[in-house]
Amino acid sequence: MTPDWAFEREHWRRGAFRVAGVDEAGRGAWAGPVTVAAVILPGLALEYPFRDSKQLTAAQRERYAAQVKEVALTWAVEHAWPDEIDRLNILGATHAAAARALARLAPAPQALITDYLKLRTPLPLTAPARADALSYTVAAASLLAKTERDRLMTELEAEYPGYGFAAHKGYGAPAHRAALEQLGVTPQHRRTFAPIARLLAQDGSGRLFGAASSEGLEEN
């Protein structure tokens, strides 16, 4: 599926020429932030290689994300970290990060397109499903959100060795589940997410990263 400008043109016809695409990465992960990007592309209806980040290789995502930053009229990326996610819930935290990203755009957007994210906003909003595969601006936002979050998760690999964050990016892979059983829960895990909450409830010690387990697991 190739993105086009159909949703943007609907806003252009109504006089809103600065249309921001908004997309997130990491919403379903067990650890790390949910990352939201907002992008306004020049309203020139050019063809770009931008695609839904899930359809691309890591190398393609990096290359196209760099191109987004070069051609965008303005862009911003914001994160909601696990403490905010646990406090607001994942949807509330995603909305909060999106609001922060949109507030940083200069010039400010006149309309929004999101990937089915029903933001509370006074701006005209189009929120179709799979917008990251249908809209150039949302595809551009998906590239920035995905590459920035992947970079952060790779950095967390060094801070919390043994969890495999660089490989599974905090999602519920078998290797991640096994590491949690062995090493415990880190400050980067979302404690209100069911798999993490269950693990914490199983052990009165809290199974915290760096704390010795009842089997005498060495500290990290």
Rank of each mutant, 00 (worst) to 15 (best):
Y64E: 08
E62M: 01
K118E: 07
A66M: 08
R27C: 13
E148Y: 02
S214Q: 06
I196T: 12
A133C: 11
V185D: 11
L156E: 07
F193Y: 15
V68H: 10
A103L: 05
Y48W: 10
L152E: 08
P82D: 13
A38W: 06
F165I: 06
R14F: 04
P107C: 14
R120H: 09
K118R: 11
R14E: 14
E62V: 02
K118A: 13
F165C: 11
R151F: 05
A93I: 01
G170M: 03
A175C: 08
T192D: 03
L180R: 07
D115T: 01
E62S: 11
R27Q: 12
Q55A: 15
A111R: 02
E47C: 06
A211V: 08
P109T: 05
A201V: 02
T57S: 15
K54L: 09
V138H: 07
L112E: 04
M1I: 09
R14V: 00
L73S: 04
I113F: 09
V77N: 05
R104W: 00
R87Q: 13
V68R: 10
T57R: 08
L143G: 10
R14H: 12
R104Q: 14
R14G: 07
A158G: 10
Q60T: 00
E10S: 09
Q60G: 05
A179R: 03
G21M: 12
A133Y: 00
A99N: 05
L123F: 06
K69E: 15
A76D: 11
A158S: 12
A99T: 03
V138D: 08
W75C: 12
P174D: 13
A201C: 09
A72N: 09
A58E: 11
E181I: 00
L119N: 05
P33V: 13
T126K: 11
L73K: 05
A140M: 06
A197Q: 11
T137C: 15
G43F: 09
P109M: 12
A98P: 11
V68W: 10
T35P: 04
H95Q: 14
I196N: 05
L156W: 09
A211F: 01
T137N: 13
A76S: 14
A140Q: 04
P161F: 02
A6C: 09
A96K: 05
E10A: 13
D86C: 10
Q110T: 12
G43P: 15
A127W: 02
E10K: 08
T154A: 15
V34D: 07
Q202Y: 00
N89K: 03
R9L: 14
P128Y: 06
A173W: 03
A145C: 04
L143C: 10
A25F: 11
T186S: 15
E181N: 12
E148D: 10
F50I: 01
L73H: 06
K54T: 02
